Amino acid sequence: MTIGDTREFIPVRIAILSVSDTRGIDEDRSGQTLVDRLTDAGHILADRKILRDERADIADQLRTWCGDENIDVILTTGGTGLTGRDVTVEAHRDVYEKEIDAFGTVFTIVSMNKIGTSAVQSRATGGVANGTYLFALPGSTGACKDAWDEILVKQLDYRHQPCNFVEILPRLDEGKRRK
């Protein structure tokens, strides 16, 4: 599992959605962490928004971005916990065509190495809809760093071997094209 020398980097277009009832753009450290990391890696920030913890509003924004041909990946931060207002995971699942089950599992493994059994409280998830990848990350800056540094930076790099999300991106909606 390495970065190969024979492939060229392919930047992907990533939208960031922060889910919070209390933060504005200036206080959104987790969203900014993701913006900084994705641009440092050579990817393109396609859009960025903050929404309150409202399931229908979150799902509507995800659907809008999934319908935008200029967005390949959506990263959300916040609303993945266990409290009554944490509805981001449910909003994601309202939109998914397919869930990437192993994303949550791998995120939990990464988190266990950092925060021990507290990782059990995370409901990070990933999926695909309308040819777009979607990932729901916890609202903590540390969790966003871990998800990016340990999983997403590699899977969103076409050079990563033996496989990565970028190489299958053009085929995510192939079932729809055949109809």
Rank of each mutant, 00 (worst) to 15 (best):
A102D: 12
A143Q: 08
R52H: 09
A147P: 04
Y96G: 02
Q121R: 07
K154P: 00
V106H: 08
D149L: 12
D36V: 06
V73A: 00
I44Y: 06
R52P: 02
G84R: 07
T33N: 10
C66P: 00
R37A: 10
T141G: 00
N130A: 14
N130G: 09
K98R: 11
T76Y: 00
I109D: 12
I50S: 01
G78K: 02
L137R: 05
V120S: 13
T108H: 14
L62G: 00
I100T: 02
F135Y: 11
V106M: 15
G116T: 06
D36L: 13
D146E: 15
V87S: 02
G78T: 05
S140M: 12
T132Q: 07
D86Q: 10
T80A: 02
D47H: 13
E150W: 01
T105G: 14
N70L: 14
I50M: 12
R48E: 13
R52Y: 07
D47E: 15
G78E: 01
A119S: 12
T80V: 12
G84Q: 13
L62D: 00
R48M: 14
F103N: 03
V95D: 00
A124W: 03
R29V: 09
I44H: 10
S118I: 07
A129S: 15
D53Q: 09
Y96D: 09
C144L: 09
I50P: 03
D68C: 08
L152E: 04
S111F: 06
I151G: 04
T39C: 10
S122Q: 07
E150H: 10
L51D: 03
E90K: 06
N70Y: 13
I50C: 01
G79N: 08
L134G: 00
L152N: 03
S140T: 10
G78P: 03
A147D: 08
G79A: 13
K98H: 15
R85T: 08
T125E: 14
D53M: 12
E99P: 05
T125H: 01
E54A: 12
I151W: 02
